[in-house]
Each structure stands twice: as structure tokens, then as C-alpha cells.
Write a protein that binds this DNA or RNA. Structure first.
Lengths: 124, 124
DNA sequence: ACAATAATTTGATAATATTCGAACTATGGA
DNA sequence: TCCATAGTTCGAATATTATCAAATTATTGT
């Protein structure tokens, strides 16, 4: 990938609504959620929602998949992974930035435990 | 800490100049660099630089320390750590986002090896 | 006190981003 | 074909950010 520069990804997530959208999509898993469901959950009117979805799509953090008359949006984990890698490498490179990160270990461990189930869950 | 919400930190880094500043400060280590040196390296005029430094300071990603007639700015690793943790937990929570992350493991391993020394190193 | 250097603040301008009603497109069902 | 639903796009108003010259503050050396 290496599609865009990091600051564009960061800017895309640097807005409360878009960050909420992305979090929701991560929650939702690979299946995704359709636009109006997102709008309902977050209280965004269609036009505003579309604007933010377009932004997130443009930078590659999410993608939409048409299914009948709905468009299901889902998070692009790969892109996010690259962003996290970038931050990790540019915040910590040889400098040891993570002093009290007991959490990272937890997450990594949990990840390998969960890796099999592709997070296929209906919405609430 | 837990000072601000993540989207403010992301927005702060979501600008090319500010991201460059932060990277430079990470490079420089705990000692930091003074403002005009930053401006020279990045080609920013004083007023613009101050504007961005103030923004990064406000959200807690960097801090300035007066020393004689200079102000040395340095990165706040703790704040960045929290941001990375947030992203890790909110991009991957139980959902396995990192498929090909051989890197994350590397970093975590390196961290525990380095954890004792609290990142006290001169710059370059 | 004065001059020089380091940096911020002010103030004005320009550029971007955000919001949302209204119009439009697309799909599916009666 | 007509209607309803799901989304996007347009357009215009508003709000927020970014840039930088000029003025200001602070510190040091003479």
C-alpha cells in the first residue's frame, strides 16, 4: 500500500465524527455496516455522513461494498496497521518511547488468540 | 494523563509541518532542539513555527523548556504512547487487525529489552 | 541603557473544512 | 410505471486553520 503520507491518514482520523465512524466499523468487523445504520448510531444526517465516509474512503481507511440497495462500509485493517507501524517506528525508533506499555502485550497476545474468527457479527 | 481525546492528538499530527516537527523532536531525543533550529531544518518562518509548536504543546505531544535565551522543545513519549495504545486497542480490539504485523512483535520485544533505561540519551 | 538574538503574539488575509437542505441517482418492490 | 428507501452530490453558508509581516516580550552581552 504505502498509498498516502501519514499526515493525511492522521488528519482523516483527527475529526471526532470520522474517528467514531472508524471505531464503529472496527467494531462491526469485515462485514461492515450500511451507511444509514452508521448515521443512526452516531446521529449524523445523510449528507454529512456521506462527506465523512468519502473522506475516509479517499485515504483508504475504509471501503464500501454495494449490496442490494445498501452500501456496507468496513474498516481497512491493513491501512490502519501501516499507520500504527509508522507511528511506532517514528515515535520510538531506537529511542524507547513506550515505558509503561503493559497494554500492548495484552493486545498482541489477544490478537493471536482471536486471529482465527474473522469477527463476523451482526450489529447490536 | 488521558488528557485529551484521541481525535485532538490525531488532528495535531494530521498536518505535515507538525508531523515533521514531532518526528524531528523524536529524533533529537529528550534534550530537544530549540525553536529556530527547528525552523531552519524545516523551512518554517518563526511565526508559523510558533503557531504549530503551540498547537502541539496544547495537546501535550511536546513541551518546551527554557534554557538561557533558547527554548528547547522535546517530544512527550508518554502522550504518544497513549495514542498508539488507543489506536491499537480501537483498531484491533478482539478483531485481529494486524495480519502481517511482524513489526509489532519486534517493537514490543525491543521495548522490554530497553524498558530499564528511561530513554535518556543525548541527541544524534 | 543599548543592541542583538530568540521566540511569541497580534492582526489581517487566505485557504480549507464542515454542515446540511435540497436536488439527484440507483435499486427493489408493488 | 410509480413509489419508497438508501445514498450521494450540489451549493451555499459558516467555521475553523494556516500563513506570515510587523510588533512585542525576554534574555544576554557590551
Amino acid at each position: 500500500m504505502e498509498s498516502l503520507n501519514a499526515s493525511e491518514l492522521l488528519a482523516a482520523l483527527g475529526h471526532e465524527s470520522r474517528l467514531s465512524i472508524f471505531r464503529l466499523l472496527v467494531e462491526a468487523g469485515p462485514t461492515g455496516i450500511n451507511a444509514s445504520a452508521i448515521g443512526e448510531q452516531l446521529g449524523l444526517v445523510p449528507a454529512t455522513l456521506s462527506f465523512h465516509l468519502a473522506h475516509l474512503s479517499r485515504v483508504g481507511l475504509i471501503q464500501g461494498r454495494q449490496e442490494s440497495r445498501f452500501i456496507y462500509y468496513s474498516a481497512d485493517y491493513g491501512e490502519m496497521d501501516e499507520l500504527i507501524s509508522f507511528l511506532t517506528n517514528n515515535c520510538c525508533q531506537g529511542k524507547a518511547c513506550l515505558p509503561k506499555t503493559s497494554m500492548a502485550n495484552t493486545v498482541i497476545k489477544r490478537r493471536s488468540r482471536v486471529a482465527k474468527s474473522p469477527a463476523t457479527k451482526g450489529n447490536s
